[in-house]
Simulated assay, not measured.
Amino acid sequence: MDDARELTDRARRMLAATQYLTLATADHDGRPWASTLWYAAWQPTSPDDGLDLVLLWLSRHEAQHSRNVLARPEAAISVFDSSQPAGTGEGLQLDVTAGLVPSPEIDDPVAVLSEASVAAGGNPWDRGKVEGPDAVLHLYAARVRSAYLLGRGTRVRLPLVSG
């Protein structure tokens, strides 16, 4: 069995190498919806033996997944590099609580997202671009509640930092 540090290192490498996630949500009636979104991974702390993980993305308020997370913040996320050969790849399955990032908490997450966006060839972002009446895209976050690493024929629960 892999130790906690090796498992979390594998998960971190996957998050650093992958730019898209699939977000699974449900509306207030329970109808499911899946969306593929560009994301940035944020680890507010960096412990060696566990993940402290928040996934960030930009979205319009009227998008189905945005409406769904506001109605039901419980969601699931899958991260997988689809360029891996069949039967060889690793992936992550995440149980999350998702929602709009509140204004008083927006500065650190939007800085993380902006840095990742610029590194990926995208635009810089700041508070003024993601909130207020003129903002088209808004900042959403998913806090990971449980995480599983898939690969090598196994599904292993990853250690999380409590907090």
Rank of each mutant, 00 (worst) to 15 (best):
R5E: 11
E6M: 07
T8Q: 04
T8V: 13
D9H: 06
R10N: 13
R10E: 11
A11D: 12
A11I: 00
R12A: 08
R12Q: 03
R13D: 12
M14D: 13
L15F: 04
L15Y: 08
A16Q: 12
A16D: 11
A16H: 11
T18P: 06
Y20E: 13
Y20K: 09
Y20N: 14
Y20T: 15
L23M: 07
L23D: 03
L23E: 00
A24I: 10
T25E: 06
A26I: 09
D27Q: 06
D27F: 01
G30C: 10
G30K: 11
R31M: 11
R31N: 13
P32R: 09
P32M: 12
W33E: 02
W33I: 02
A34T: 14
S35A: 15
S35H: 08
S35E: 11
W38R: 15
Y39I: 01
A41V: 11
P44T: 00
P44R: 01
D49W: 02
G50P: 07
D52I: 00
D52G: 02
V54F: 08
V54K: 11
L55K: 00
S59N: 14
H61M: 15
E62G: 13
E62P: 08
S66V: 06
R67W: 08
R67Y: 08
V69G: 06
V69L: 06
V69S: 08
V69H: 05
L70G: 11
R72S: 10
P73R: 15
E74K: 14
A76C: 08
V79P: 01
F80M: 14
D81L: 13
S82P: 11
S83R: 12
A86L: 13
G87M: 12
T88N: 10
G89L: 06
L94F: 05
D95R: 14
D95I: 14
T97C: 11
A98T: 09
A98K: 00
G99E: 07
G99Q: 07
V101D: 04
V101L: 00
V101A: 01
P102M: 04
S103R: 09
S103G: 14
E105Y: 10
E105S: 11
I106A: 03
I106E: 00
I106P: 00
D107A: 12
D108G: 05
P109N: 07
P109Y: 01
V112H: 04
V112A: 05
L113T: 01
L113V: 02
S114I: 00
E115K: 09
E115R: 09
A116G: 02
A116V: 01
G121N: 07
G122D: 04
N123C: 14
D126A: 04
D126Y: 00
K129Y: 14
K129T: 15
V130F: 00
E131V: 11
P133Q: 12
P133M: 12
V136Y: 08
L137E: 02
L137C: 03
L139S: 06
A142I: 03
R143E: 07
V144G: 05
A147R: 03
Y148D: 01
L150S: 10
L150E: 03
L150K: 04
R152Y: 09
R152L: 08
G153A: 03
R155I: 15
L158E: 01
V161S: 10
V161A: 14
V161F: 07
